[in-house]
Amino acid sequence: MNRNVVFGSALAAVLTSAASLAQAPAAQTAPAPVAPQAVPAKIAIIEYEQAAAATNEGQRSLHEIQQKYQPKKTQLDALAAEIETLQKQLQSAPATMTDEDRASRARAIDTKQKQYQRDAEDASNAYSAEVQEAIGKIAQKLGPVVIKYVQQNGYTMLLDNNGQQQGGLTLMWAPGTDISQAVVDAYNASSGVAAPLPAAPSAPRPQPTAPTAKPGASK
């Protein structure tokens, strides 16, 4: 599933729940019509995906996934180093090397490069899928915390700052208060998950990347 769909669905669930709660009193007898009045908007901004990843639970999940893929990263790094060594050996080969031997070594390098590319792509896709799934689950649980915080603090509009970077046309953007860290703190307090150890990833706004390296191209 596309990561934008995962986090977009999570945020949509938050906004839908908030809207239904806000509209609940409408089921009662409607008061007499009154002249419309302008109400100043109190806008809350959240970086929803990053907030989910920045929670203690998110940091723990990211660390566990990174540890899981560390052996594969080590394997890929070793293969990349081997390819680089073979390339240097071929480039510095004596002029007396036969064309057949030179072509054979070039084919061996090409085979290893293709193996590296396949393995790196497979590892990257698997890593990204696990990160997306893990953070997506936390994003779903983050919803009630966001709703509670927005309602308790009197916000009338909630904007996802991630959405500003996912394409599409933005007709107007109004400044507001970023509640991402406050929501992260509230979620950590309610989840009971301890903060990660110093050795674990601890950036407040992590941007997970697949553990891959690229060998130099053969000449």
Rank of each mutant, 00 (worst) to 15 (best):
P144Q: 00
T177C: 04
E133F: 10
Q151A: 10
A106M: 14
D122G: 02
Q67P: 02
Q89S: 07
Q152D: 14
Q87D: 03
Q75L: 11
S92A: 14
D110A: 13
Y149P: 01
M172Y: 05
L90R: 15
S104M: 12
R102G: 03
N188D: 14
G176D: 01
G143E: 08
E100R: 15
T96E: 09
Y127I: 09
V150Y: 08
D77H: 05
Q67S: 06
Q166Y: 05
Q181Y: 02
T98P: 12
Q115W: 03
L158H: 02
S124I: 07
D77C: 01
I65D: 06
G168M: 06
Q89G: 09
K72I: 07
Q113G: 06
Q115L: 10
D77Q: 12
D119N: 07
I135C: 11
L86K: 15
V184S: 08
E84P: 02
G163D: 09
D99I: 12
A81F: 00
D110E: 12
S124R: 14
D99N: 12
M157G: 02
Y155G: 07
A123V: 10
Q181L: 11
I138H: 07
A134Q: 11
Y69D: 10
A120H: 09
E82S: 13
Q151F: 05
Q164W: 06
Q113M: 12
A103S: 15
A81C: 02
Q132E: 09
D77F: 03
G168C: 10
L169C: 01
I147A: 11
P144H: 01
N188K: 08
Q87M: 05
K73A: 15
M97W: 12
N153C: 07
E84G: 08
T170I: 12
A174R: 11
Q132S: 14
G136V: 00
P144T: 00
A134E: 13
Q89M: 03
A186R: 10
G163M: 09
E121A: 15
I179E: 04
P144K: 02
A123P: 01
Q132M: 08
G136T: 01
E121D: 14
A103I: 07
D119V: 01
D101Y: 08
N125S: 06
Q132T: 12
N162G: 14
Q75A: 13
Q166T: 07
D119G: 00
V146P: 06
Q89N: 04
